[in-house]
């Protein structure tokens, strides 16, 4: 049971770090639906780098760097070129899904390196993720930088008038978001499950996206949601731990996705929206036009 619990926390690390990236971006008004693509890139290039150089550190750095580059690209499309943010995000996802399938194919198989050391079985990345959640919360709600980011996401024209450079702020947030997504992917392929296989994420990125909506843009709720979904995910992989022999293991794999739909539905009811609906950044998904 301890092992299952630990494994769930490991899984939640991946949801949490990717989700924190998305949360930062969304707070500044940039919606990136291509999380899964950025994660696949970070995971694949991180895996390739680590395997060919034998260095975990380089693997994580490359994963973050490629994520940051994709964030920059998303920023360029959606901020400078004013392409619809959904279109650009879908582009990143399909680019990631398509290109990493080809790039990673020669590396298919296990990583073949010593596992990253753990503390009582717990990966150090969980601690990092929790610290990151705290840091993101602190920066967003307690510092002037956070105020700047939030104001850009709420009402960019007012932010601009008060002397904030909207485009620059959004660019930085989008790059930061991409770096965290890339890191999260690299943690998946280097620590959580160090075996490369094509399109191995199977929906982690999209669940992370749903979790950000679920979190009401609050890093601590995101932390809670990630732990919850990390547990669901592990349960769906090991149903025999709780209810042995009840349903086919394939049916169990559907469960986290069904729960995500249920949560989204619950959050969209009038009852819920009237109470907490105002948390959504007002300018989310809208390009900013400077007149």
């Amino acid at each position: 049971m301890w092992e299952f619990f630990i494994r769930s926390l490991d899984a939640s690390t991946i949801f949490l770090i990717a989700g924190l990236g998305e949360l930062i971006g969304q707070r500044s008004g940039v919606l990136n639906v291509g999380i899964e693509g950025a994660m696949l890139f970070g995971a694949t290039l991180g895996f390739m780098t680590a395997q060919s150089t034998g260095s975990y550190l380089l693997g994580f750095l490359v994963g973050m760097a490629i994520g940051g580059l994709l964030g920059l690209m998303h920023g360029f499309f959606s901020i400078s070129l004013k392409v619809d943010q959904v279109v650009s995000g879908m582009g990143i996802w399909i680019l990631g899904f398509g290109l990493t399938t080809y790039l990673g194919a020669p590396y298919a198989g296990p990583l073949g390196m010593d596992r990253i050391p753990t503390v009582m079985g717990l990966s150090p990345f969980f601690v990092l993720a929790v610290v990151l959640a705290g840091a993101v919360w602190f920066v967003l709600s307690k510092t002037s930088l956070g105020l700047q980011i939030r104001s850009v996401g709420e009402d960019p024209s007012v932010a601009e008038v008060s002397g904030i450079n909207v485009s620059k702020t959004r660019y930085y947030c989008s790059i930061m978001a991409g770096m965290l997504m890339g890191l999260s992917g690299a943690i998946y392929s280097l620590d959580y499950n160090p075996v490369w296989n094509y399109n191995f994420l199977q929906g982690w990125g999209f669940i992370a996206l749903a979790l950000v909506f679920f979190s009401l843009w609050n890093p601590f709720i995101l932390l809670g949601g990630s732990v919850l979904f990390g547990t669901f995910w592990q349960l769906s992989l090991n149903p025999q731990l709780v209810l042995p022999g009840l349903m086919s293991r394939y049916v169990w794999r559907m469960v986290p996705f069904a729960i995500t739909l249920g949560v989204l539905l619950m959050m969209s009811t009038k009852w819920f929206r009237d109470r907490w609906g105002s948390a959504k950044p007002q300018a989310l998904g809208q390009p900013y036009f400077k007149d």
Binding site: F77, L81, L95, G98, Y102, A108
Partner: peptide, 26 residues
Amino acid sequence: MSFGLDYALLGVLMITLVAFQFFYQY
């Protein structure tokens, strides 16, 4: 060549089209 060439094509086509959305609009 290694597996997934048709997937890579999918990705490259997609991202090019995203960039071209700009020219459709402006």
